[in-house]
Amino acid sequence: MSARAWSPPPLIANPWLRRGLALAAAAYLLAAVSSIEVNWERVREGLDRGAAFVASFARPDFVSRWGDIHEGIVESLSMTFAATAIGIALALPVGLGAARNLAPAPVYALCRGVIALSRTFQEIIVAILFVAMFGFGPLAGVATLAFATIGFIAKLLAEDIEDIDPAQVEAIRATGATWPQILVYGVAPQVMPRMVGLSVYRLDINFRESAVIGIVGAGGIGATLNTAFDRYEFDTAAAIILVIIAIVMGSEYLSSVVRRRLQ
């Protein structure tokens, strides 16, 4: 008895379309590569500067600007905590309103709009806007991070609420509970562990973002780092980057521990 051959059906059934797409992809790649202009002179210069920069990492200077570094770190951390707390407090009602199974249509549309607005712009763009509004400094940074936190937390909270078991909510409603009681007894227990996990995760993200938005003038360690680069103090810059890496790794580890505990 001869074995019957089998091969999985191709992703695109039409053979002409399939071969045509493969050909088009190859042609595009060829055209794209041939259009790249490399100035080897500049590459060589850049590599030299890069080597100097990497070399300075071998001897980071924590000491001569320690006052600035310390101030920047403290500022970044306080920005992070303030912005996360404010952002979560504002995100809770927005997230509730953006859950299709809880909110009436107009509230749903409004809250989804807020989320979309918050998530449309990258933090740096928002930071530039807030720096223009509030001036340089940590206030603009806190506003930026809080604004970004609203979109992040509210969206994920809303999606979590939309996935809850409706039977538990129905059972609480059947007892004669009011709407706020239904939220506390029927909804909150179902979303709380994930909500705490997300908040810790967002705290972690906000610290990293606080370093980035400092570069456009929104305060914190990013501003200190930018100043170090402007003065060509690569050894101080290296020290700042190492401190940032240490804090990010530490907070990431802590947030992963917290989230694992919550499962």
């Binding site: 078991d165 039977a167 538990q168 129905e170 059972a171 609480i172 409603r173 059947a174 007892t175 004669g176 509970a177 009011t178 007894y185 029927g186 227990p189 179902q190 709380m192 562990p193």
Partner: peptide, 20 residues
């Protein structure tokens, strides 16, 4: 809500709040 207090309901899949 007052009328619902007078009617106890028991469900197919129990519908307990699992994490409480």
């Amino acid at each position: 809500r007052r009328a619902r207090r007078r009617m106890g309901m028991i469900f197919q899949e129990y519908a307990l709040v699992e994490r409480l």
